[in-house]
Simulated scan of single mutants.
Amino acid sequence: MSAKGIPMKQNRPLARAATWFDLKAAPYFLVSPYFILFAIFGLFPLGFTVWVSLHDWELAGDREWIGLQNYTDLVLDPDFWNSVVNTLGMFVMATVPQLLLALMLANALNKRMRFRLLFRLGVLVPMVTSIVAVAVVFGQLFARDYGAFNWLLGTDGLDWKAEKLTSWTAISVMVDWRWAGYNALIYLAAMQAIPRDLYEAASIDGASSRRQFWQITIPMLKPAIIFTTLTSTIGGLSLFTEPVMFAQGDVGGGSLGQFQTIAMYMYEMAFREREYGYASAVAWMLFLLIVLVSLVSFLFTRRIGGTK
Rank of each mutant, 00 (worst) to 15 (best):
Phe271Ile: 05
Pro195Cys: 07
Ser208Phe: 09
Gly253Lys: 06
Leu288Met: 12
Asp197Lys: 10
Val282Phe: 11
Ala190Leu: 07
Ser209Trp: 03
Gly235Leu: 06
Met266Lys: 05
Ser280Arg: 04
Met174Ala: 14
Thr301Tyr: 00
Ala281Gln: 00
Ile234Cys: 06
Gly181Leu: 07
Ser232Thr: 06
Val293Arg: 04
Phe227Ser: 05
Met266Val: 01
Trp284Asn: 03
Ser203Gln: 15
Ala180Asn: 11
Pro219Ala: 13
Gly252Cys: 04
Ser232Val: 01
Phe240Lys: 11
Ala184Leu: 04
Gly277Pro: 05
Val296Cys: 08
Met264Trp: 09
Ser255Arg: 08
Met269Asn: 14
Ala270Tyr: 02
Glu242Asp: 14
Pro195Tyr: 06
Leu295Gln: 10
Glu268His: 11
Arg274Met: 11
Ala224Ile: 07
Ile194Pro: 00
Leu289Asp: 08
Pro219Val: 13
Ile186Val: 15
Phe287Gly: 12
Met191Phe: 04
Leu299Thr: 05
Tyr187Val: 05
Gln248Trp: 12
Phe259Asn: 13
Tyr278Ser: 03
Thr301Ser: 13
Pro243Trp: 04
Val282Gly: 01
Tyr182Val: 03
Gln260Cys: 08
Val251Thr: 15
Thr231Asp: 03
Val291Asn: 05
Ile186Ser: 10
Ala180Ile: 02
Ala270Cys: 02
Gln212Met: 14
Ala207Leu: 11
Met269Ser: 13
Tyr265Asn: 03
Gly277Val: 08
Ser294Glu: 10
Arg302Met: 15
Ser280Lys: 03
Phe213His: 10
Glu275Lys: 15
Ala281Ser: 08
Met269Glu: 14
Leu230Phe: 00
Gln260Arg: 15
Lys222Glu: 02
Ala193Gln: 14
Gly257Phe: 08
Ala193Lys: 10
Asp250Arg: 06
Arg196Cys: 00
Gly253Trp: 01
Val251Ala: 11
Ala247Gln: 13
Arg274Trp: 09
Phe227Glu: 00
Gly206Arg: 12
Thr241Gly: 01
Pro195Phe: 04
Val296Met: 09
Phe298Ile: 09
Ala270Ile: 01
Leu221Tyr: 02
Val291Phe: 12
Leu221Asp: 02
Ile216Asp: 06
